[in-house]
């Protein structure tokens, strides 16, 4: 498992691109479109990111949390599982799995600080703990997640372009605004980020890629998806999506009783 992605539950749970953007029936009934479903996931991924900055956890914890978040919504509706609560609960669970536990009361504190008077985001410790258990169930108790970071460093070294590390690393971070981690093996995502970085920074990696003997069509497809994303969405690192864009969608979701 830890040594072999292909034998892992992560690998066995990978989905086709069409499968990740299916809006659950309960959300469709509330008028949520495929595009809006995607917007919520983008916005809440950024929410997890910002919350994680506050409580200071490693990159890996954030990546695992967002993967859980996205995986949950391939199985559950936002109507039933409020993304405003699922997001911090994913971060909470991921912090335990990655051996750097964050206390639930700290999360509650920082959510209040971040979201101010908006009490749709306000939750008690108890809410997070209850959601943690529901998440375990929703994830079918599969908790080990692989990420592109480790293969990225390894591959950059192998290609002799470690000067691109920072740039490529940032690209990998941005891939979590998409569902790529649910679809492609992490090392393919890493390769796509290296591909983009080397093209944009004028490094000739053609022969290196050839020697790798990976399916370049997949690498290029992932790269195109990432570039498309940058063209389509503007995500403010401090605020997520703009209010005008995300509020109408969030308002379609029920709030806690």
């Amino acid at each position: 498992m830890a040594a072999n992605f292909w034998a892992s539950s992560h690998s066995k749970q990978q989905l086709d691109p069409e499968e990740v953007d299916v809006v659950p029936a309960a959300d469709r009934e509330r008028g949520i479109t495929t595009e809006e479903f995607r917007l919520v996931k983008i916005h809440m991924s950024s929410h997890i990111w910002r919350l994680a900055q506050q409580v200071k956890v490693r990159q890996r914890v954030i990546a695992t949390a967002i993967t859980y978040f996205r995986r949950v919504y391939t199985r559950k509706s936002m109507t039933e599982y409020d993304p405003r609560l699922v997001a911090p609960a994913c971060l909470y669970l991921a912090s335990k799995v990655e051996e750097s536990t964050v206390q639930a009361r700290l999360l509650v504190f920082y959510i209040k600080k971040m979201c101010g008077p908006d009490d749709k985001y306000r939750f008690e410790i108890k809410d997070i703990l209850e959601m943690e258990m529901k998440l375990l169930e929703a994830l079918d108790y599969y908790l080990v997640v692989y990420h592109p970071y480790r293969p990225l460093l390894h591959l950059l070294q192998n290609a002799g372009i470690t000067d691109l590390t920072q740039f490529a690393w940032g690209l990998v971070n941005d891939t979590y605004k998409m569902d790529l981690i649910l679809i492609y093996p992490p090392y393919m995502i890493a390769l796509a980020c290296i591909y983009i970085a080397s093209v944009l920074k004028d490094k000739d990696t053609t022969s290196w890629f050839e020697e790798l003997r990976v399916d370049m069509n997949i690498v290029k497809n992932i790269s195109m998806e990432i570039l498309d994303f940058y063209e389509t969405y503007k995500v403010d690192p401090q605020r997520g999506l703009s209010d005008e864009k995300i509020s109408p969608v969030m308002n379609k979701l029920p709030t806690k009783a």
């Binding site: 830890a2 669970l93 335990k96 799995v97 703990l129 943690e132 908790l143």
Partner: peptide
């Protein structure tokens, strides 16, 4: 109180679910 699922349980589930 306030700590949710024990990290011991999480560790055990996480590993045993894979192996």
């Amino acid at each position: 109180e306030g700590d949710g699922v024990s990290p011991t349980a999480i560790r055990e589930i996480m590993l045993l679910r894979e192996i």
